[in-house]
Nucleic acid binder design. Structure first.
Lengths: 154, 154
DNA sequence: TATTGTTATACTCTATAACTATA
DNA sequence: TATAGTTATAGAGTATAACAATA
């Protein structure tokens, strides 16, 4: 029972972190004129280079229709452009504007900076312990596909 | 530089966990006929008891209008009812139906069960290391209000 | 025939503003 | 005058289905 308390406490900390981190990211992205979804698309584009909307839809696990909307918004706000695909006239290539490329690069730098701020004063053994613990939790989540409602179907 | 890599890796693991956990929760809630937002309202109601919509709006940090919509949906799907407030005729008390109360209780049991599955085979020292690491990260996030885009404004 | 991306339509969550009933 | 909750309106993200252009 003491164990159960500690386990539940650990899960509670993880869920807290999810909330705090998500809110923090959303606020930061808003300052850049981005939403979570649009930033996600930018992030993929940054790591894949110019991509068709189909590719982006598969990468983000959303519908083609959704990508049309996100790209519309990112074009309207000056982050990306639609270019003709060189060989397939059905497809369009989504590419960065200068502003979009600069923003994506800044997001990447920001991520490293953020990691530094979060962990710079954490002793090595604790950082290691944290990563090992997280890896184990992730493994377990992926393998067992357990769900937080596993006990909830009465 | 090696340090930066390890720190960025740790942040990467945390972000992965955020994604996997969120998706898992959303899927599980969907099986119960709930969305994330509706489950969040149910969760508050479970811990506060019958509440006015105003109270719920403040607890969830959303607008009164939003609560109207969420309660509408939860009434329509049989999780809660609107009851007259005993002393304030402007207000309504949101209360559980039997189904709603059972679902909320099941969510709570499910959370303990989920924690057990995630951590049962984790050695004590690693669980402790994980919790300590998470606490430190949370502290730092809250104190400094840093943002993942902190380096992103060029 | 199959694929790419669009239009059409709809649902959920979210917000602000105007309004009603009550305090 | 202030508060509780609604209606009105709007915008973002998401989905499926029908369709056009192209492969």
């Amino acid at each position: 029972m003491a164990d159960q308390t500690r386990q539940t406490q650990a899960l509670g900390r993880i869920l807290e972190l999810v909330v705090v981190l998500s809110e923090d990211m959303t606020r930061g992205l808003e300052r850049l004129g981005l939403t979570d979804s649009r930033a996600h698309l930018l992030w993929e584009l940054h790591h894949r280079g110019p991509s068709t909307q189909r590719t982006l839809a598969d990468a983000l696990h959303v519908s083609a229709r959704n990508i049309t909307g996100l790209v519309d918004a990112l074009v309207a706000t000056g982050f990306v452009t639609r270019e003709p695909h060189p060989t397939d006239r059905r497809a369009t290539l989504v590419s960065f504007t200068e502003h979009g490329a600069a923003t994506a690069a800044a997001l990447e730098r920001g991520q490293h900076e953020f990691a530094r701020i979060l962990f710079e004063e954490m002793p090595d053994h604790r950082l290691d312990g944290l990563v090992e613990g997280l890896n184990e939790v992730l493994d377990r989540l992926r393998k067992h596909g357990v769900s937080i409602e596993s006990g909830a179907d009465q």
